[in-house]
Write a protein that binds this DNA or RNA. Structure first.
Lengths: 214, 214
DNA sequence: GCGTTATGTTACCAATGGTAACTCCTGACG
DNA sequence: CGTCAGGAGTTACCATTGGTAACATAACGC
């Protein structure tokens, strides 16, 4: 009952054609990103991991970059999904903003390299990957939505929505990046231990505070 | 009256010993980071640029990483200096917080790759470079100072200083990273054109707003 | 059955980080 | 002023990587 891919991996090379190479490579690449970071991903290693010659991968991905762009897109979409889920559970406007931030933070802490890949600068500008651009937009959307809701509630002037949305996103984004770099858990600014929860609580308080609510 | 280094570069290989190789390499590396990003820095290319065999560089830097760590340290110290300068010109507490943020943003926009190198994740944890750690602390310090001042002015409760400092830093940091990735100048959240000033003004407004001041 | 073509393979290239063994020059010391 | 220890370069080498080209195989439409 094991999937074919797994069987293949267990039985070394059985057939000439792999059958699920593309997925297998993506799978291995996901793992490799999580464990070794984006820079640690090498096509040769992926080929070895999937039991295939390194040139075979080029039949499915034009480039190393193209492969990573695909994972980056995927990560952005996952981040968007996490945020939407969090937002849907909000009990109030400010609560929504907090949940949004915490979801972002948890996403990052859960797999730092994945978040870094999602925002890898080499893909930020690139017009070469339209799907990636769309995914990036999707990842911003929840922040805009939540802040708009806050404006509707009178928590801030309507004309400041976009700026406020940027500010909110920037803070959550920056907080998460600093957190996954270990910059909030050591040194002078040390918020707490290495655990996630204290960081999440601190972030929530900061958000609440910045919206005037005690 | 040209410095020896320049003369050497103009006159190809004159002496067996370079004389200023270390500095020359650092110089070339700084340029290379700015133009090609940290990933674009190769020791071989640096060797070529300084007119020396690639192995010579290893007499001055144990590693490629060590070289980059040095540049990273340098960048963090420069960032700290920029911030201190900005803070010293503040006309009020909130003005100081704004200036701090704008200085951070300008530093990043001025040389994006340099800021990214300053916060390169590979060095964030590394206990291997004590100077780098100290520099990272120095880069955080101004934020703490400015927020402490804000607390002294009664703009926020004293018990929230650290959390608020983190929040402030996170927002400025995140804002800057998003800006240099071009994520604030295109797409839905588009703050303005590609210029710096509009971004700086928007950041200032956001900071002011978040401290309750209109 | 039979070709077309997607999918893999081997063989190759240039570039890179890194090391070892060797050479050259400089400068400290007798 | 000579010499010799060692810092600073050099060449030669290694494994690894991204990428391409030419060839092999098997899957699938006809």
């Amino acid at each position: 009952m094991l999937p074919q891919v797994t069987l293949r991996r267990m039985a070394a090379k059985r057939t000439y054609h792999h059958g699920h190479l593309r997925d297998a490579v993506l799978d291995a690449a996901r793992r490799m990103v999580s464990t070794a970071g984006t820079d640690g991903v090498s096509l040769r290693a992926l080929a070895r991991a999937t039991g295939v010659s390194h040139a075979a991968i080029y039949k499915h991905f034009v480039d190393r970059e193209a492969l990573l762009a695909e994972l980056s897109t995927e990560a952005l979409l996952a981040l968007a999904r996490s945020q939407r889920l969090a937002l849907s559970r909000a009990t109030s406007t400010v609560d929504g903003l907090c949940r949004l931030g915490v979801a972002y933070l948890r996403f990052g802490m859960d797999d730092p390299a994945r978040l870094r890949l999602a925002f890898a600068p080499e893909f930020a500008r690139s017009a070469g990957y339209p799907l990636l651009r769309a995914a990036a937009d999707a990842a911003e959307a929840p922040a805009i939505e939540a802040v708009t809701r806050a404006a509707d509630d009178g928590l801030l002037p309507h004309r400041a929505i976009r700026e406020r949305a940027v500010a909110h996103w920037a803070m959550v984004h920056g907080y998460t990046l600093l957190a996954i770099d270990g910059r909030l858990t050591e040194g002078r600014l040390s918020v707490a231990g290495t655990r996630v929860d204290p960081l999440a609580r601190a972030l929530s308080r900061a958000i609440r505070l910045s919206y005037g609510a005690g």
